[in-house]
Design a protein around this nucleic acid. Structure first.
Lengths: 352, 352
DNA sequence: AAAAAACATACAATCGATTGTATAATAATA
DNA sequence: TATTATTATACAATCGATTGTATGTTTTTT
């Protein structure tokens, strides 16, 4: 059935006029007489014409398309950012290509190449956890394709726009909240600390302990891939190895949910025996029992801002340079997994 | 910073050879001497050359790209199908463009136009709930762009490939299971029955009732948009209007989760007072308490199969014609929301 | 009515890569 | 060595749309 698609040349020939006039008519140029336009439009419709964007973009050297790369589209945070990005992009007349790296650098690399080869006007990216060597990303803007990071970025790249969440603060607030609920020995589940966001959440955890004069104990920090299974497994481990742990700050909700499942199964009371906080505000966290205290990251807003940064760049051409970084404060969402019945005296801080 | 990207012509000029040779070298044609290839590749690398796929695709009249349209990428079922699609597509050397209609026909229409304008080689689509008039889709293959439906399709379009889930069966099994758990008055929450999949789930519900000689009562069927809030609201309604209802079959998990939240809050025991079954196997359903009985749809498998159908078509060119439909059986997943303590005698069926 | 201004359309080059054909250079055969 | 076969590269058209310039028409002005 693969009949050839109509072109402006066919339209031009059947009407006995030039293709340039057809092109202008279809672009509603005022260099074409209204009557002629009408004739051309009618014929275009009749032939089922659709503009070949490959040709158009090639000629105009502009694709009106923004590429978006996220680790996983199924994560609530990322699908929210995508919603925000699409909202702003469509308003501004841009299309959006969504890609997922599945946390693999190799896929990320291929995706970047492909987006560049397809001449997207810009790229919005939240990098894969694996990504250490950002060469494919530096190439990207050396190449003339502007890049904006959101959430997960490459710290060493200063020449691009960034929209970040203050993960240190998020980690701090979650941990401080646990302390204020009376926890004195708080464990931490995290991904490898090479990943900036996890390093920062860990940093927040640590400095909250410090503020309240609680000792930092590396043995209470467990590193994993932070899937639900990991949370389950590590909860078991921490309970057995450190029976006096009374709080856990999980650097993401998936691990927290896994941990919660273990604790419930093991008969450990949450929050009174162990209080539990997660990070990211996955939808499941609101529904699970007890509902999970977590940190919301304003995904949609981040998406909007990141897209704005890129759109600004398209218009002004220089805003991205010089470490244009927007930092958003996350928001602690307190739910049942940390709401203790009786709260002991809060320890004095070592600040003020 | 928008320095112009290198082209094969630049490479050719700096090396004093013809661009056609460069093109062939970069495509590893055996019409170019190995030594020349090496020289060309080196220069390409040096200049940071990336093939302009706009030009290449235009010339070759092939984009090696498959467009995928789903209602929402955040739905577990759809992100699973996308995983399956990407897996097969990448194996076969195709790229995938992911788009979400957000259940709006208008967006769907725009997306289809845009994919066609970008000359994707084919489209995989699960239509928006709103979509009644499929003109944009019929145009699509009249136009020469092959189309494969998965999950949600347009029943009247026979000329395309389809990979479907047997929703009638899913609805039947969920309802039969409720009956076997002792439910005698079973409500049903559904979306407008114009949507094929919901009509089918409803059909399955109805025929299960029939099989076990239970009356079908239209008053127990509640139509909504099936968001979590709707489930909550309608659970309240059904409990107040029909206090003797002892089971609910929700045509999706979101509404079921909402309903469960209401029932728990209202002190209605699940499953013993009211047993509850959902549809789609969202991750939350496994985690909520009580865990939710639901119907799994094998998203990844559906994605693989749909993509296969399209790839077959690319190779053979005619498999899509004549209602090539693959129907998959869904799988009932029994969890706590329907596992009753004491199960009464199961009513005799009117079949056999 | 002639000249100037405004308008409508045609011509032709271009975007960057691909590809059939032609030509030149080298190798193999007689 | 002359001739054919083989190999390597160059030439030129093409994909479909856009756009600056040129040309021809109509309208307006004087």
């Amino acid at each position: 059935m693969s009949m050839k698609k109509a072109t402006i040349h066919e339209i031009a020939k059947t009407l006995g006029i030039d293709s340039s006039t057809v092109s202008r008519a279809l672009n509603d140029s005022d260099r074409v007489k209204p009557a002629t336009k009408k004739k051309i439009r009618a014929k275009a419709r009749e032939l089922g014409y659709t503009r070949n964007l490959l040709a158009s973009n090639l000629r105009r050297n502009k694709s009106n398309t923004i590429g978006v790369i996220v680790p996983r589209i199924s994560r609530h945070f990322f699908s929210s950012t995508i919603a925000g990005i699409e909202e702003r992009a469509h308003q501004a007349g841009y299309n959006v290509i969504i890609c997922q790296s599945l946390e693999k650098v190799e896929r990320e690399r291929k995706i970047v190449r492909n987006l560049i080869a397809n001449r997207v006007d810009g790229i919005l990216i939240s990098i894969a956890m694996e990504t250490q060597d950002p060469r494919h990303l530096t190439e990207c803007f050396e190449n003339g394709t502007p890049l904006v990071f959101f959430d997960r970025h490459v710290a060493s790249m200063k020449q691009t726009g960034k929209v970040l969440i203050d993960d240190v603060r998020g980690g701090f607030e979650a941990t401080e909240h646990l302390i204020q609920q009376g926890c004195r020995k708080i464990g931490h589940f995290t991904a490898p600390l090479e990943t900036e966001i996890y390093r920062n959440r860990h940093g927040g955890y640590r400095s909250a302990l410090e503020k309240y004069n609680l000792p930092y104990d590396g043995d209470l920090v467990f590193v994993s891939k932070m899937m639900q299974e990991d949370g389950y497994r590590l909860a078991e481990k921490i309970v057995k190895e450190h029976p006096d742990v009374d709080g856990i700050f999980c650097a993401n909700d998936f691990a927290a949910i896994g941990a919660l499942n273990y604790l419930k199964k093991a008969g450990v009371k949450v929050p009174n025996d162990i209080a539990l906080a997660g990070f990211s505000n996955e939808p499941t966290s609101a529904v699970i029992e007890p509902s999970l205290t977590t940190v919301d990251q304003f995904g949609t807003e981040i998406g909007r801002l990141a897209c704005n940064l890129l759109l600004d760049y398209f218009e002004n051409g220089n805003t991205l340079v010089n470490d244009q970084t927007i930092m958003l404060a996350p928001k602690l969402i307190v739910r049942d997994s940390t709401k203790r019945n009786k709260i002991p005296r809060i320890p004095t801080t070592n600040l003020s």
